[in-house]
């Protein structure tokens, strides 16, 4: 089977296939939305206009209305989507790479080394995630970079566990023994044999880590521990919407719907790829 055969039409029955496809569709929609320059709405997301405070959706010039400072909701949503998706993808990438490195090292070396690395992993697991995230945020400030680092360092352990398991499985394969017996160097083994075989697993893990990062960012920002106010992200937008909820429910609704749809899209996408690649 070709590595990109997921692009081919899916032969699974009705609803499942529609779900997979709609996941991909929404996924591409989100990506294109976040790749648009934030200026395409023609309005500055942080510009305040007192005439339009809490304007309802459909106000001329402000398609989705304005927030409690009179900032345009649509442009805040667009720039917020870019920020949230960027953080999600970065967290996904970093935590997958970190976890893959740890798991590969542990599974490849084996023995005492493996035991030590896995014990360390358990300790890291036993630390409350929020402790790690909060302390790192305090140390690094409240920017995008800090959020990415905090969430990546708090969330790579699951990846490491899965990668270690897969590495152990690959180590038992005949082709690996063959490669080793003709004297392939460890570097060659890792890059030519382990990594290519781990790639599907890593990609699926990445697809599941990205929504984890998005959720983590929005939770931190919602609680006021993440990005600081003038910046917009899905988390900060939900926070602002929640404060104005009884008056203007739509301010909460827009980012909330986007968060839920994004998480669903990544989940469905990851699941249908996982089904194809990891039987």
């Amino acid at each position: 089977m070709n590595r990109f055969s997921f692009m081919l039409p899916d032969r699974r029955p009705g609803l499942q296939r529609i779900l997979g496809l709609s996941g991909v569709l929404f996924f591409s929609l989100l990506v294109s939305l976040s790749l648009l320059p934030s200026s395409w709405t023609g309005l500055d997301p942080v510009e305040q206009n007192t005439r339009f405070v809490l304007a309802p959706p459909g106000t001329p010039g402000h398609l989705l209305g304005c927030d409690f400072l009179g900032r345009d909701n649509l442009s805040r949503l667009v720039s917020g989507s870019t920020v949230s998706l960027f953080i999600g993808v970065c967290v996904g990438l970093f935590s997958t790479v970190l976890g893959a490195f740890w798991g590969l090292l542990s599974g490849y070396r084996g023995g005492m080394f493996d035991t030590i690395l896995m014990r360390l992993l358990e300790v890291w697991y036993a630390l409350p995630e929020l402790l790690i995230a909060t302390i790192l945020m305090l140390a690094l400030g409240h920017g995008i970079f800090a959020v990415v680092v905090a969430l990546s360092i708090g969330g790579w352990m699951g990846v490491a566990r899965v990668v270690r398991g897969e590495t152990l499985k690959i180590r038992e394969q005949a082709y690996l023994e063959a490669a080793r017996s003709i004297g392939a160097s460890p570097v060659r083994l890792v890059f030519r044999h382990f990594l290519p075989n781990l790639l599907p697993v890593l990609f699926v893990l990445l697809l599941f880590r990205i929504p984890g990062g998005i959720l983590g960012e929005s939770t931190l920002s919602f609680l006021g521990l993440g990005l600081s106010p003038p910046a917009s992200s899905w988390g900060t937008l939900v926070n602002e919407g929640w404060k104005a909820l009884p008056l203007t429910p739509w301010i909460l609704a827009f980012p909330a719907v986007l968060i839920v749809l994004a998480l669903l899209a990544f989940q469905w996408f990851g699941e249908s790829l996982g089904k194809r690649w990891l039987q």
Partner: peptide
């Protein structure tokens, strides 16, 4: 069986995708 199964599966995905702070906010409201 299949149509119901699919609906239930997507219901469970939806549950996972619903952040607890969002659900809490909606419940309070």
């Amino acid at each position: 069986k299949d149509p119901v199964k699919g609906i239930l599966r997507s219901l469970s995905s939806f549950e996972v995708a619903l952040p607890s702070f969002l659900l809490a906010a909606l419940l309070i409201d």
